[in-house]
Amino acid sequence: DTFTFTLDGIEVRLHGASEELIKTIEELLKRDIRWEELEKWIREWEK
């Protein structure tokens, strides 16, 4: 599955994202998160 969203005018596609990761990103997007914050968060998630 591919999860697609737009952040700061950039279309982002995550391939093979888990349901948990998708739900977490959706929550972060509701908080009007900035790209830099999401990028940092995703790097931490990957560890």
Rank of each mutant, 00 (worst) to 15 (best):
D1G: 13
D1R: 14
D1P: 11
T2V: 14
T2A: 10
T2Q: 07
T2P: 12
F3D: 01
F3N: 01
F3P: 02
F3M: 03
T4I: 14
T4A: 09
F5Y: 02
F5V: 06
T6A: 04
T6Y: 15
T6H: 10
L7I: 15
L7S: 03
L7Q: 02
D8M: 04
D8R: 01
D8F: 04
D8A: 04
D8V: 02
G9F: 05
G9N: 06
G9P: 00
G9C: 03
I10Y: 12
E11Q: 07
E11N: 05
V12A: 02
V12D: 01
R13Y: 11
R13D: 09
R13V: 15
R13F: 10
L14W: 05
L14D: 00
H15R: 05
H15Q: 12
H15C: 13
G16I: 05
G16T: 05
A17P: 07
A17E: 02
A17Q: 03
S18P: 10
S18H: 06
E19L: 14
E19I: 14
E19K: 14
E19C: 10
E19A: 13
E20S: 09
E20D: 10
L21R: 03
L21I: 14
I22S: 02
I22E: 02
I22V: 10
I22H: 02
I22T: 05
I22D: 00
K23H: 11
K23S: 12
K23P: 01
T24R: 14
I25L: 08
I25C: 02
I25W: 01
I25T: 01
E26P: 01
E26R: 12
E26I: 13
E26N: 13
E26H: 11
E26S: 11
E27F: 08
E27P: 01
E27N: 08
E27L: 09
L28G: 05
L28S: 03
L29R: 02
L29K: 02
K30I: 09
K30C: 04
R31K: 14
R31N: 13
R31M: 11
R31V: 08
D32V: 05
D32A: 10
D32N: 12
D32K: 00
D32Y: 05
I33P: 09
I33T: 06
I33L: 08
I33K: 03
I33A: 07
R34S: 15
R34E: 07
R34A: 10
R34G: 11
R34Q: 08
W35M: 08
E36L: 12
E36F: 11
E36Q: 12
E36R: 09
E36A: 13
E36I: 12
E37Y: 07
L38C: 02
L38R: 00
L38T: 00
L38N: 00
L38W: 15
L38H: 00
E39V: 10
K40I: 12
W41T: 11
W41R: 07
W41K: 09
I42H: 01
I42E: 00
I42Q: 01
R43E: 12
R43A: 13
R43V: 11
R43P: 03
E44P: 00
E44L: 03
E44K: 02
E44R: 01
E44Y: 04
W45A: 06
W45N: 06
E46N: 11
E46C: 08
E46L: 14
K47V: 15
K47G: 14
K47P: 15
